[in-house]
Design a protein around this nucleic acid. Structure first.
Length: 494
RNA sequence: GGUCGGUUGGCCGAGUGGUUAGGCAACGGUCUGCAAAACCGUGUACGGCGGUUCGAAUCCGCCAUCGACCUCCA
């Protein structure tokens, strides 16, 4: 189901202009969207979850609004320069040598891992997921285009983008608010940059040293593409030289996206994206997550609870919900306390969704369904304000529970609408799916549970509370939660 | 050092020039054999100091503080 009625009011914060703007696609009814994907040299971690979920919701919402969306998210598998204390070394190549595997084997393994964990977070796969290694030819074409326009130069088998020249004719740094002259005067010189005319020039093509095992032939010699180039080559190939939305983490704003703008402007004649959207970072106990800080938590560790900072395991949906409870442009801090609160809140929402199916209808409705619908659309259309949508869902939850408690009522028609809205916003757009088939699922299990509840209620009727409590407690040990209500007990499997 | 962004009640986290965010936790009550769940009620928060205004937590200035980026990073 889609709703084109709300298309016109969708606003997004555009990093380029530093303000919210009404979203209007380049081609009516169609949206092209590019998001920087993972570098597949390590296990997916919390940092991967934030942009994936943020732009997943954007993808879902635009689709819901009735746009035909082409969502492109790349896989970086050619390795990028690693700037450790010593010489630059290709990340993937380094890992490969350590584990004595073919580089592509590493890339494939971590790509699969990425997919597995994103699937568990209920992140939809993009429309196209291009690999950098599969687009070497396209990247070399971009190099040629930039060389032909005179904004790049060859040096020792590498090709560099001429940033000072670009800055004279255009404006380098407009996205991140940097001024090249300021940067020049305040940045230290790095070693090994004598090949470059300016320290701010960046590689379009990098010469591969003999020990560098990820390499491709080119007219400049064997080498590999520079670390900003794939996005320019692949976005223009699949979305056109200008497209609607470019997304990614805030940390990519400079220099990565700045370089993309420069490359696109020269090679393709104009800036690549009209709206730039950046998600903020995550912190752990108020501290930036980083390998050196010892608070680097992979998604697998989260799902299994196998990290010393975690008091317990947290389900994929808890993490998704937790991330969506904060606005994407705010930092979000992970702590056990906050995660446990999110876990309970999500449970309340899930319970309400299940209750919706058991609700008895009445002659009139005490609630304003239209207002609920409107607040959901208003929230999402205001730069994807997922916390407000969730607040609206909690308001609806209260209504559902009040009706279930027999203190308010709802007509059959309104109930159908409310169910539809719940599914639409909680399920389709926010992507909060039910993790465990609770009361549904196994038919035989349901029958057995009905039998257990029946025996318990007979014990209660006979005032044999020892037995009824024993049934409840034993079931509880097995993970079944028994809830006594006005019309008898219900159960859930946690 | 430069650029940018935060600082909201016990915790998380929206928002806004004057009217309830929401969740979690806490407390009181209803229901219950008990408990859980659910429902009802309670908290009057916006870093500090000035300024603008009839009125600011919301706008402006200064200060404090935290963080991000500037170097691989989502």
């Amino acid at each position: 189901m889609s709703n084109t009625k709300y298309r016109g009011i969708f606003t997004v914060y555009n990093t380029l202009t530093r303000q919210k703007e009404r979203f209007e696609p380049l081609h009516s009814g169609h949206v092209g969207m590019y998001v920087c994907g993972p570098t597949v040299y390590g296990d997916p971690h919390l940092g991967h979850a934030r942009p994936a979920i943020t732009f997943d919701v954007l993808f879902r919402y635009l689709t819901h609004l009735g746009y035909k969306v082409r969502y492109v998210r790349n896989i970086t598998d050619v390795g990028h320069l690693e700037n450790d204390a010593d010489e630059g070394e290709d990340k993937i190549a380094k890992k490969a040598r350590l584990e004595e595997l073919e580089p592509m084997e590493i890339a494939q393994y971590y790509t699969d891992r990425y997919h597995t964990f994103m699937d568990r977070l209920n992140v939809k796969r993009p429309s196209i997921e291009p690999r950098a290694s599969g687009h070497i030819i396209e990247q070399l074409q971009v190099v040629e285009e930039i060389l032909a326009k005179g904004y790049a130069y060859e040096s020792h088998g590498s090709v560099y983008f001429d940033v000072p020249k670009y800055n004279r004719d255009y404006q380098y740094g407009k996205l991140s608010g940097r001024v090249l002259d300021d940067l020049m005067s305040s940045t230290r010189d790095l070693d090994g940059q004598e090949e470059k005319r300016s320290s701010f020039d960046f590689a379009l093509w990098k010469n591969a040293s003999p020990e560098h095992i990820m390499r491709w032939p080119s007219r400049f010699g064997d080498g590999f593409p520079g670390w900003h180039l794939e996005c320019t080559a692949m976005s223009s190939k699949y979305l056109g030289t200008q497209f609607d939305i470019h997304g990614g983490g805030m940390d990519l704003m400079f220099p990565h996206h700045e370089c993309e703008i420069a490359q696109g402007t020269i090679a393709k004649g104009h800036e690549p994206a009209r709206y730039w959207m950046h998600n903020n970072m995550i912190t752990i106990n108020g501290q930036k997550m980083g390998k050196s800080l010892g608070n680097f938590i992979t998604l697998e560790e989260f799902f299994t609870g196998s990290h010393r900072l975690l008091a317990s395991a947290y389900s994929p949906m808890t993490i998704r919900f937790f991330i969506l409870q904060a606005h994407y442009r705010s930092t979000v801090d992970f702590s056990n306390e906050a995660l446990q609160a999110a876990e309970k809140g999500l449970q309340r929402l899930m319970d309400a969704r299940a209750t919706l199916d058991k609700l008895k209808t009445g002659a009139h409705t005490n609630y304003d369904i239209d207002a609920f619908e409107k607040s959901c659309y208003d929230a999402l259309s205001d730069d994807l304000n997922t916390p407000l949508v969730i607040a609206a869902l909690f308001d609806a939850t209260k209504a559902i529970n009040t009706i279930a408690a027999g203190q308010a009522s709802m007509t059959a028609d309104d109930l159908v609408r409310l169910k539809g809205l719940f599914e639409r916003f909680m399920g389709d757009v926010l992507g909060l799916s039910t993790e465990v088939a609770s009361t549904g699922g196994d038919e035989k299990l349901g029958e057995v549970m009905q039998l257990m509840l029946h025996l318990r209620s007979e014990a209660k009727a006979a005032k044999n509370f020892a037995l009824s409590d024993q049934i409840r407690d034993e079931l509880s040990k097995l993970g079944f939660v028994i809830k006594d209500g006005k019309d008898g007990a219900t159960w859930e499997l946690k």
